[in-house]
Structure formats: structure tokens, C-alpha cells
Amino acid sequence: MQCDRSRRYRPRVFNFVLLFVVWILLTDITFGNMLLAAILAYLIPMVVGSLQSAAPRVAKPLKGAGYVLVLLGDIIVSNIVVAKQVLGSLDKLEPGFIAIPLELRQPLPITLLASTISLTPGTVSTEVSADKRTLYVHALNVENEPKLIAHIKHRYETPLKEIFEC
């Protein structure tokens, strides 16, 4: 596959930066702490590296940042909608299981999509079919099943596909 070139060192750099920043945030910014953070951030990914599965390359990091912003806005807006539904009449709600056909194939993008769906109020991802081609989602209020599926596919899956380029 052409999308997993250069995956041997990219996650290592990402892990280094992540561990370094977290260690600095947990402690104070002094020279000793930064030195310790650098050593730990270099050693820990080496030790636990074999636990990691291969991740596809992030092709467009800027688009990823935009995706996170869109997601934050959606979380806030739709939480208000769900708050109204929860406090309103429960008989009007029409819960349901829906199936979303997946175009993503790698495990990491599918995980991200499932987490996105779970964080967006009104939907919780329940299960992935064994061949990783369908994502089962429980929705709190299904007004229009094809419309909801199309909305999720258009708003969340298409950007993820572009970000991971495969």
C-alpha cells in the first residue's frame, strides 16, 4: 500500500512530542524537568514500541486541526439539542440502531470515526462488523434514517478520509 510509507519513524516523533509536553504540563518548567522529560520521552516509546500497531500517515495535519474545531462546535451545538430531548417528553423520542457503511479501511481512522460519533450527542457507536465494513450506531432520536447516515458520512467520514489519504 502506498499510504504506509515512512511510518517507521513518524509515530516515534509524535510520541516524543506528546510525552514531552505531558511531562512538562504535569511538573514545572525547569531545566532538570525538561532534561528528564526528554530522556523519558525518548526511552518510553522505545520500550513500548512493539505494542503499537501500524498507523497510516497523517497527510494533512492542518485539515486535522480544522476537523477538531468543527467537532468541538458540533459537540456544543448538539449537546443543547440533546438536553432539550432529555428534559422533554420521552414518548416523542424514536431511538434506533442504524448501520453506516464504511469507506475507511484502516483501524485507526475507524476508531477515530467511532469516537467522533460517540462524542457527538445523539449517537453512540455500538459495534463494528467483523469485516470492518459496517459501523453500527445507536441513535437517541432517528427522524430520518437515510438522512442521518448521509449526514454522518458527509460531515465526519469524508474529512477523515482526506486527512489520512486512504
Partner: peptide
């Protein structure tokens, strides 16, 4: 939002619907 999440956990009728309120309203 924490209150809404707990009210949802309290009064929604089945488990799958109960799952919605705490995981999202409480997180926000």
C-alpha cells in the same frame, strides 16, 4: 450540563438510551 446528564441517566427508559446522557452531557 452535569445536571442534564444525571437527569438523563435517571429518567431515560432503557440502557442504550441511558448511555447517551452521561457520556456526552457530563463530558461537556
Amino acid at each position: 450540563f452535569l445536571l442534564v446528564g444525571s437527569i438523563g441517566l435517571f429518567r431515560l427508559p432503557d440502557f442504550f438510551m441511558r448511555l447517551h446522557a452521561p457520556t456526552k452531557a457530563s463530558t461537556l
